[in-house]
Amino acid sequence: MSIVLEIKGVNKTFGGLKALTDVNLKIEEGKTHAIIGPNGAGKSTLLNCCIGKLIPDSGSVTFNGQDMIGKQPYEINHAGMVRVFQTPEIFPELSLLENVVIPALAKRDGIFKFNPFKMLSNETEIHDQAMRALADVGLDKFHQKNAGSISRGDKRRLELAMGLIQNPTLLLLDEPTAGMARHDTNQTIDLLKKIKDRGMTKIIIEHDMHVVFSLADHISVLAQGCIIASGTPDEIRNNPKVKEAYLGETEDE
C-alpha cells in the first residue's frame, strides 16, 4: 500500500498553548482513517494544518510526494485533497444544482479561467455530472431548491456531494455527522461506505463512536495534542491508554 498523506513531526502552538506536539501520521491509500479524541485535543488544528488554513511551527505535511506547507487552499484542492467542513460551507443563495456545478467547474477549469462567452446552459456534461453527484446523496429531486432553505442534515449531504464531484484522492471529513439525528447519521454512514467501495481515501474526524467503528479501517487517538495510540479498531478498543483518555469517560456517562 502506498502512503497518500504523511504528517511528520508537526508542532503548533497558539500563544502559550501547545495545540499539537510532534504529531506523526501516515494515511494509506484506499483506507478510511479516523482521528478521534476528546474536545480540544487538536483534531481540527491538525486538519487545518493539512489544508493550508494554518501553517505548523515545525514539521512537514507531504501529500502524494508534494510538500503542502504554505500552499494556498485552492492549490491544495487541485493537488487532490478536498475538505468537507464541520459547519456546512455552501452557497446559500444558489440552487442545489449550482452548488454542485461550481466544484465540477473548478475541477475542469482550474484555479482561473476567463470564459464569459460560454453558455452555462450548454454545459450538458457538467450538468449531468452534477445531477449524478446529487443523486448519490439523494438530493437530485430538489435540485432547483435554494441551498439556504434546506435542513442542516441536507446541507451537510450537499457539501459531501460538492466534495465527491471533484473525485479527490483524499477526502477530509470534519465531523460529518455532528448535529444529525440518528436516522440521518445512519444514512450518512451508508453513503460513506458506498464511497469507500470506490477506493477513495478518507480521513474522518469524529466524536460519535458508532460512526467511527462502523467506518474506520484505522484509528488514531489524539489527546492534548499528542497521538497516544494508533491501530485497527479492535486494537484501539482494547488499548488501556485510550480507555483512560477517552473511551473510559464515555463509558462512565
Binding site: R83, F91, E93, L94, E98, P103, L105, N115, K118, M119
Partner: peptide, 21 residues
C-alpha cells in the same frame, strides 16, 4: 456564463470558493 456563476458564488461564499479550488 460559467464565469458569471463563479462571480455570483464569490458573492455568496468566498471562503468556499477558495477551498473549492
Amino acid at each position: 456564463s460559467p464565469y458569471g456563476l463563479k462571480l455570483i458564488a464569490i458573492k455568496s461564499n468566498q471562503k468556499r470558493m477558495l477551498y473549492t479550488g
